[in-house]
């Protein structure tokens, strides 16, 4: 189960999307997320769907990989869908016990599910096609201007990339510790909430101890390899825009214009 989370995992392939500059992908993801919340018209979603499918196709990432990441948010989706379904006021079409379902509620619910799924798809595509180092490089360079107001962009980027690298390691470790405690008769499945929370202590304490030990080791290894912040640092793969990146920016521009046009035109309407 723990290994099912694909967020933050890189899928190796050679595709146009993989080769794009991470800054393009970051901006693209941002625009994509914003566009998801710019209205509830069918046409808007049709456009978003087409764009998303095109990007997924271009990325050569099997759909299976993207949907696998979805499993971890199923509960979140169900809860927010339920909230939208039952708590939206409007034209009542169904009443059962204390629950009422309205036409608006159904619309809201469907859109919420689509939004969440698209949100995960969009961000997964970015993390699946961009190596964490590349991603942090993109953040570092893309947010370079923040450096002038003393935001430690390089440090934050480095922290992110390390966090991403250690996610799979710590997950494996969690699995191992869990099994080890189960072998000592620990029971994580039965009992009430308090008992279950308490049962997590034998996992969390060793996990924290191990995370600190690893952090300590890693800091030492980085220091030993002359790490001293961003000062005077060069790059093996410095970010440089190529013509495909310019084209991608143009495509993004077109997409943004279309999205804005539709959302203004279709304001407050579904169809």
């Amino acid at each position: 189960m723990l290994r099912d989370i694909t967020l933050g995992q890189y899928y190796r392939a050679n595709s146009l999307i993989h080769r794009l500059d991470p800054r393009v992908k970051l901006l693209g993801t941002l625009i994509f997320i914003i566009s998801l919340f710019l209205g509830q018209s069918i046409w808007l979603y049709a456009l978003i769907t087409v764009a998303l499918i095109a990007v997924i196709k271009l990325s050569k990432v099997p759909l299976k990989y993207i949907t696998k990441g979805m499993k971890s948010i199923v509960i979140l989706v169900i809860i927010s869908a339920a909230f939208n379904l039952f708590l939206t006021d409007g034209e009542v079409i169904f009443r059962f016990w204390k629950l009422t379902i309205t036409r608006e509620g159904i619309y809201q619910c469907v859109f919420m599910i689509i939004r969440l799924i698209y949100l995960i798809c969009g961000t997964s595509i970015m993390t699946l096609t961009t190596t964490p180092t590349n991603l942090t490089d993109g953040i570092e360079k893309g947010l370079d201007f923040l450096n002038k107001i003393k935001v430690p962009v390089h440090e934050v980027a480095m922290m992110m990339s390390i966090a991403l690298r250690f996610i799979p390691i710590l997950m494996e470790e969690t699995d191992k510790i869990m099994k080890a405690q189960m072998a000592r008769g620990a029971d994580f499945e039965s009992g009430n909430l308090v008992k279950r929370a308490k049962a997590l202590i034998p996992i969390l304490v060793p996990l924290f101890v191990s995370a600190f030990r690893r952090a300590n080791d890693l800091a030492m290894a980085m220091e030993a390899r002359c790490y001293h912040g961003s000062e005077g640092r060069t790059k093996m793969k410095p970010l440089k825009y190529k013509s495909r990146d310019h084209k991608a920016y143009i495509a993004l521009g077109v997409y943004s214009v279309l999205v804005i046009a539709i959302s203004i035109f279709m304001k407050g309407r579904f169809i």
């Binding site: 510790i177 080890a180 000592r184 008769g185 034998p202 060793p206």
Partner: peptide
Amino acid sequence: FQYPEHQLFESTIFKDVCFGPKN
């Protein structure tokens, strides 16, 4: 397990060893 010392979690050695039988 391998490197079993990584699963120790209690505040004292004795308490840690009690974990199994208590379970």
